[in-house]
């Protein structure tokens, strides 16, 4: 009886010790969980956070210059930049594109393509190439923002035609219309999450997650590389603005389900299910199925 009592009291002290340690552990875990997903405290916090990020996205391009109530304002760079552009063009571009951008066997004619085309290729770092044999790939731009505008201004001054540099006003865009247009016209190559994918014959639809609103609008309007061109007969400026707005959204989508796994869908999910899900359960099974001692 006495022995029984002692055991009981010992158990009670064990219990309080356990409760204490576990409570603190659980609290740490809960805090860590919430901290990992800062935008998703609970419903209200979530809602307010979302409004805030949306407002930020919307405010950015508005401050960028387009103060009018147009969804997209097309503006050529100031003509004062043309001399600087001519200089840069001679240094970096004319080896392939020719002194007057008339093209050569190595590179296309740029005359009449407009400032948006040139700005897109230069701003995304695809041009100028370090040497003519290099592939035109997305990389940090070699020219400064002013230099990009200068080259665009110069090429645009050579011949009329082509769109000027667009500044989308995302504040006027319709996100839902953008989703619909994106799914119909863009997702077939860039995937619905904007992750990008490989097309036939060594061509890639790039990921859209790093593209600026201006670049997206330029790409839609000018159709760089293998991308089709979507002119005013296909999309109105409003529609382009809507798409750009949706692209801005999928750069920071609502991943409320947790880790997004790169946005490539069931392939990654399958690997997680098999390797992590089944894998950890097999480890647990190894523990359970093994002999004690």
């Amino acid at each position: 009886m006495n022995d029984h009592k002692r055991r009981k009291s010992k158990k009670r002290s064990q219990l309080s010790w356990a409760v204490g340690s576990v409570a603190s552990g659980a609290a740490v875990l809960a805090l860590a969980t919430i901290a990992l997903y800062p935008h998703q405290g609970h419903a209200e916090v979530l809602a307010s956070a979302k409004v805030a990020t949306h407002a930020k996205v919307a405010a950015k391009p508005a401050a960028h210059g387009a103060s009018s109530q147009q969804p997209i304002v097309y503006k050529n760079p100031p003509r004062s930049l043309i001399p600087q552009g001519r200089q840069l063009f001679a240094e970096d571009c004319q080896t392939c594109h020719g002194p007057d951008a008339e093209g050569s066997v190595r590179a296309p004619n740029l005359q009449g393509l407009g400032a948006a085309t040139v700005d897109f290729w230069v701003a995304t770092g695809r041009m100028p190439l370090a040497d003519p044999t290099e592939e035109a790939e997305i990389k940090p731009p070699r020219l400064s923002h002013e230099q990009q505008l200068a080259v665009s201004a110069y090429v645009a001054s050579l011949a009329p035609g082509g769109p000027a540099i667009p500044s989308p006003n995302l504040g006027l865009a319709n996100l839902s219309k953008g989703e619909s247009l994106f799914a119909e016209n863009c997702a077939a190559c860039h995937t619905i999450t904007g992750a990008g994918d490989a097309l036939a014959n060594n061509i890639y639809a790039p990921s859209l997650w790093a593209a600026t609103p201006t670049e997206v609008a330029e790409a839609i309007r000018t159709g760089p590389g293998d991308m089709p061109r979507f002119g005013p007969g296909t999309f109105s400026n409003q529609e382009v603005d809507d798409i750009v707005r949706y692209v801005a959204y999928i750069q920071h989508p609502d991943d409320r389900g947790g880790l997004a796994l790169g946005g490539v869908g069931p392939v990654a999910e399958g690997f997680v299910a098999i390797l992590i899900g089944l894998g950890s359960l097999m480890v647990a099974g190894y523990w359970i199925g093994g002999r004690a001692q």
Binding site: A26, L29, A30, T33, I34, L36, Y37, Q40, G41, H42, A43, E44, L46, R256, G257, G258
Partner: peptide
């Protein structure tokens, strides 16, 4: 009670 949040729910369910 406070409205739910997927990650917190998953974490607590796990525990």
């Amino acid at each position: 009670w406070v409205g739910g949040q997927p990650q917190v729910e998953g974490g607590f369910l796990f525990l």
